[in-house]
Amino acid sequence: SELMNSSKLIRMLEEDGWRLVRVTGSAHHFKHPKKPGLVTVPHPKKDLPIGTVKSIQKSAGL
């Protein structure tokens, strides 16, 4: 199965306009000026399962 580095996923979010608002432990929480909701990324993780990545991307509207 495909894995993604959390840094790469965070870069994709930031390029889309998401900004880090809070860190709780290894959970990084992002908000967007125009899009609704809060997106949480486990970080640092070298090997996020593709299912997790897809669900984060979906929440972020990517």
Rank of each mutant, 00 (worst) to 15 (best):
R11W: 08
P33L: 08
P33K: 09
L62A: 03
T24W: 11
S59Y: 07
L62C: 05
K46V: 10
S7F: 15
L20F: 04
S1Q: 15
L62R: 02
G61K: 06
A27L: 14
W18R: 00
V39R: 01
L9V: 10
E15R: 09
P33R: 07
V53W: 07
K54Q: 12
P42V: 04
K35V: 03
M12D: 07
K31L: 13
S6E: 02
R19D: 07
H28P: 01
E2Q: 11
V39H: 01
S59T: 11
L9T: 02
G61M: 06
T24V: 09
S1A: 10
D47P: 06
M4R: 12
H28W: 09
H43Q: 02
M4P: 05
T52P: 02
P42Q: 05
P44V: 04
A60W: 01
D16A: 06
S26C: 09
G61C: 05
K31G: 08
G51F: 08
N5R: 06
S55E: 15
L48W: 02
M12K: 06
T24N: 12
G37T: 05
K35W: 02
P49D: 15
L3H: 12
H29T: 11
K8A: 14
T52D: 06
L13N: 00
G61I: 03
V23W: 09
L48T: 02
H28S: 05
S26V: 12
K35D: 01
V39K: 01
L20C: 14
R11D: 13
M12S: 07
F30Y: 08
A27N: 13
K45E: 09
V53D: 02
G25V: 14
S1W: 05
S6G: 04
R19F: 15
K46S: 15
H43R: 03
G37A: 06
L9S: 01
S59H: 11
H29Y: 10
K34T: 14
K45C: 09
L13K: 00
P42I: 04
Q57S: 07
T52S: 05
K58W: 07
N5P: 14
D47Y: 15
Q57V: 15
T40G: 06
M12L: 10
V41K: 01
P49Y: 05
I50N: 10
M12F: 07
M4L: 07
E15S: 09
I10M: 05
S7T: 14
V21L: 08
L20P: 06
S26H: 10
M12T: 08
L20Y: 03
K34D: 09
P33T: 07
V39P: 02
D16T: 04
T40Q: 10
S1K: 06
G51Q: 13
K46E: 15
L62Y: 03
V23F: 06
I10F: 03
L20V: 12
V23R: 11
S6P: 03
G61P: 01
I50A: 12
S1M: 14
P42C: 04
I56C: 02
A60D: 01
K35E: 01
G25P: 15
F30C: 01
P44G: 05
L48Q: 01
R19G: 07
K35C: 03
L9D: 01
G25T: 13
G25I: 13
K46Y: 12
S59I: 14
M4C: 09
G51V: 10
L9H: 01
P42N: 05
N5C: 12
K34M: 13
V53L: 06
E2K: 06
K54S: 08
H29W: 13
E15V: 07
V53A: 04
S7L: 11
V41G: 00
R11F: 08
G51Y: 09
W18I: 00
S59A: 15
S1F: 06
R19I: 13
K8L: 12
I10D: 01
P49R: 06
P33I: 07
L9P: 00
